[in-house]
Design a protein around this nucleic acid. Structure first.
Lengths: 244, 244, 244, 244
DNA sequence: ACCTCCGGGACGCCCCGTTCCT
DNA sequence: AGGAACGGGGCGTCCCGGAGGT
């Protein structure tokens, strides 16, 4: 969303770098159609022919021009997703600059969930990585992302006294990683991601209920807790365990 | 569209019930070979030919005598896994009858991890369910298993006062489900399940650290915590992350 | 012709050795259809789909069962051709045992031409080898065949005095190789092999005219020369500069 | 080399007649790259993309500006080759004007072999014609070239008494055609054309040894025979050739 | 009943030769 | 002339039935 994905020169999935405006748009459409299939049935379950059927304006020739192979497409999807994550972090750094670290963590989690809700590419990227379909390095980036990002935030919060003294911030980074992966998997299998927002809300409320300093927690709960943070998106979800 | 498998009402995967001893063994070997492939590359990533290559004593004809289709094989793997889970629960009911519910929960989690470590079919079943490859009902059985089993245990513990008063046992059932799924996914993608035991140990230590009553917790920690419960398997795992 | 090809265990083109009678026949039909395409347009010019169209009773499944790949099919064709050549030699060893070596050479050349005329597989095998489409070893077998076989015959003739003293038998082996390859290529390109028999007849008449001892030559010519040797097939050929 | 090819209006390979100097150079580079691929793997074995990879300065747009299709390129290569042959003949008419016809024939054969050694286009043209890849007319030009050119030379030599009386010059024209084609095919398949010069030398020595008048032959041999004629190139032919 | 050999097509991904905007 | 896009096969492989044997 927002920013076009702009094939990163490093990952090098495109057979050639995209130059013309039309080409960029085409590439985007291909990626979108591919992501839809990857998100629905995973890497091995998808097929080029079904991807092409999803968007009749895309042809096999265009696909082959922009991507060297199916695997390159999957890689591009994952790379684009990691780019989207980076964007969420970057935007949060601006928007939430004046918030305390625990609130920033909550809003970041909310932002990522928002992204997954809004972006087919994002959902596909997470699924592909979870399947180990794009090589060890890229398959583990969500893990690295969550662990590093949230461990840093928790460390900051710990230093401020917003987290109980006995809690190890690094350990919580790993913990939050597993929770987030788990919520995605569980939600995908049981409700097709419809209750993802609900699960995320629930999980963070539980986690904060345990780890946060009582004073911080009281304030946070008076503001509405995680549900308030995710409120803007929750409306969009029909299924799910709501309320929390 | 790769439509999911509509579970046959009987649940029976074999075209016919196995009668002769040799036939049973053959069926078992086929299931084992199939599970190995499913565990390694998932349902769509696997192929009958590769499965047959894994065990040269199995031929395509034998496979199709015992299983109506590839889907039926996957279903059989998941069913077998759920059967294995049920066995773990049944065995725990006997072995751990005199333990308090929280300790029983810990030992159950350890037993399941043990099963995943030892059984190819178990790993394959969990992966297949996590892919949604066997229809909604069977794909969600791990979720149902974790939520129901552990919520019941937590409720019991709550009633005894082993869990802090403000904790909702049912909510924790859902929480533990997400954690467990997440640990599996994370571990599979990053280390090929090598550090699964470590992650599980770590997660339960953290969870109990938060939710358990302080008195119970002190005792539990003096006994060695989750690591002690899983000790027998931990030796086999190298990558483990959970120091504490 | 006549004898079925009996996949040589060494070349190993079939995915599995043929067992049942029906399978042998199928394999033969595939090979025949493939040979027809190879002979017509060469290895790279041919296509599996066109091969399958040539014989509607053959399907891709059958093809894939008998041959691991297109290349394996080409190899099998070449191997079968070399087998056919060997048969010609073997049959000649019996039929022409009482002839002098030069006459045996002539009849051998005639027999090979006959084979090419009668056998699609033979024509395909020679063309494939001439394209270098089956790896260096098999591509050079016609060369090795002609050089070795005829050099030996010429050496024998030389020892008997049927060949002029100044002629080097080994050199003539190489010479006859080039002539034979050349006649095939020229004839294929200009007349689709229709005048092959004529060219072969002509070339051998010229060669014998030069290299043979005058006394032997006179006798040979009185018998009708090369045309008499090839007479049975010549009727089928339109072009050709045959002397008589 | 030498003269640019100047598309004959009849053959009609260029989409437009080449006008500008740069355009001519581009066309030449394309032809060279195409010839390299044709020579290495034949018409059907080659591919436009590989051709473009051979010379990165050439783009698909340029290729299709100069040639209407792949087939047109092949045709242009064969036409250029025939042009090169014509040049060899024309140059020989000047350089060898004072030689007797048999020596002119030998030098012509040597010149053609030289051309094949030096020119990728030449090798490609002969291979393409030998595959029958450019239509019956152009595919048979090498045959027509050899038969007509050398039959004329031999007739002249026969009239002068340089060839034995009983030899039919027209027949020898056909004979030399087959030999030359055969040497090319044999050499290409067995050594990637590395031993072509050697085979040609050998064949002509044998042929002259048979057909030439003894007196002429003695003189010729005292001059060094065919080897002397080809001496300048033979040195180059040890490892050379370099198929692909 | 249990299992093997053989065969059947549909479809997988890739890449090919070409043409259409710039 | 160059970058982009177009579809039609290319070969290989998939999942699966029938024919047949033990």
């Amino acid at each position: 969303m927002s920013r076009p994905i702009s094939g990163s020169p490093s990952g090098g999935s495109p057979a050639r770098p995209a130059r013309q405006a039309r080409a960029v748009a085409t590439r985007e459409r291909i990626l979108e159609a591919a992501a839809a299939d990857f998100a629905a049935v995973g890497y091995h379950g998808s097929s080029l022919s079904r991807i092409l059927e999803r968007d009749p304006s895309v042809t096999k020739g265009a696909l082959y021009f922009h991507f060297a192979s199916k695997e390159a497409m999957a890689l591009a999807v994952v790379e684009a997703t990691s780019e989207l994550y980076r964007d969420v972090v970057a935007r949060a750094a601006v928007d939430d600059a004046d918030l305390d670290p625990l609130r920033r963590a909550a809003r970041l989690a909310s932002g990522v969930q928002d992204l997954l809700h809004a972006s087919t590419v994002g959902r596909a990227g997470v699924r592909l990585a979870g399947e180990g379909a794009v090589g060890p390095t890229w398959s583990s980036w969500p893990t690295r992302f969550w662990e590093a990002t949230f461990a840093a935030l928790f460390a900051e919060a710990h230093a401020r006294g917003d987290i109980r003294g006995e809690v190890d911030p690094a350990a919580m980074g790993r913990f939050v990683t597993d929770i987030s992966h788990g919520a995605f998997t569980t939600s995908m299998v049981t409700t097709g991601l419809a209750d993802l927002a609900g699960r995320v809300t629930h999980n963070w409320d539980v986690m904060f209920g345990f780890m946060a300093d009582p004073r911080w927690l009281a304030e946070w709960r008076s503001e509405g807790g995680m549900a308030a943070v995710m409120r803007r998106h929750l409306a969009l979800d029909d299924g799910g365990g709501g309320g929390g």
